[in-house]
Design a binder for these strands. Sequence first.
DNA 1: TATTGTTATACTCTATAACTATA
DNA 2: TATAGTTATAGAGTATAACAATA
Lengths: 140, 140
Amino acid sequence: MSTRERSQMATSLRVACMRISRRVRFESGDDLAPHQFSVLLRIEDGAQTPRELAEIERVSAPSMTRTVAALVDRDLVLRAEDPNDGRSVLLSLSREGVEMLKAIRRRREAWMLDRIKHLGDDELDTLRRATQILERVAAE
Amino acid sequence: MSTRERSQMATSLRVACMRISRRVRFESGDDLAPHQFSVLLRIEDGAQTPRELAEIERVSAPSMTRTVAALVDRDLVLRAEDPNDGRSVLLSLSREGVEMLKAIRRRREAWMLDRIKHLGDDELDTLRRATQILERVAAE
DNA sequence: TATTGTTATACTCTATAACTATA
DNA sequence: TATAGTTATAGAGTATAACAATA
């Protein structure tokens, strides 16, 4: 494949990914703001303290204090004192938080499934192989 | 392909697209906020009035007033009175606005090209065909 | 002293309500 | 009256600076 073709492909692929991503977000009817969803995912993924979350999400400590407070207010996240360090708080998902993540994922999956359900096996196979490549590319 | 497989594919593909999209935005070093970039694209695409832009972007009229004002302040967008309707203003991209869009696209393309440059022809071909499918899917 | 987290304050983007000017 | 756009004001999100409590 020529350099010119690669370049065009890079743009088309990028634009297609961004369109899909945008529509998933807009049309799945999430009832959680993007930054809140993201923090919930981080906690699910093992992050425990506001400090950690602020670093991962690259926001300031006071911003994370607010975001976490909002999630605790909505009973999606639990706060506990750290028995080993009186300065720290330990965060975890509540049952409601786990359910919220499940519900959002369910809606997003449904949206995407609806888009690909009428494709033929050939096209699905192409998408499957492309997905594996994209996963590698995005992880680098 | 079974329903179960399709469902898993839908999720993997969605997540891969969102990751790519997120990294493109974060790592291309845009010097324009996302909502400003989006409005610039809409004007390039033919939108002329704040009213139109507010509807397309689904924000309130006052919000669009501010966004447009910021773009005009930065000399990226030109305002003109509508000769046929004294209430309206007509917006267009300035030369700087056109350049800004070009620069952002150039950086985003470079980022994506950098990710796919080491792939083999087989993989690139898979991505090319997947891109065509995704474009159709995203357009529906 | 260094670190964790919060409070104080300010700036930006969002919204709704009220206003001006024009159709 | 209805429409295009702005201004006024308030509610979230962001930030930095200053503070408390603990290590």
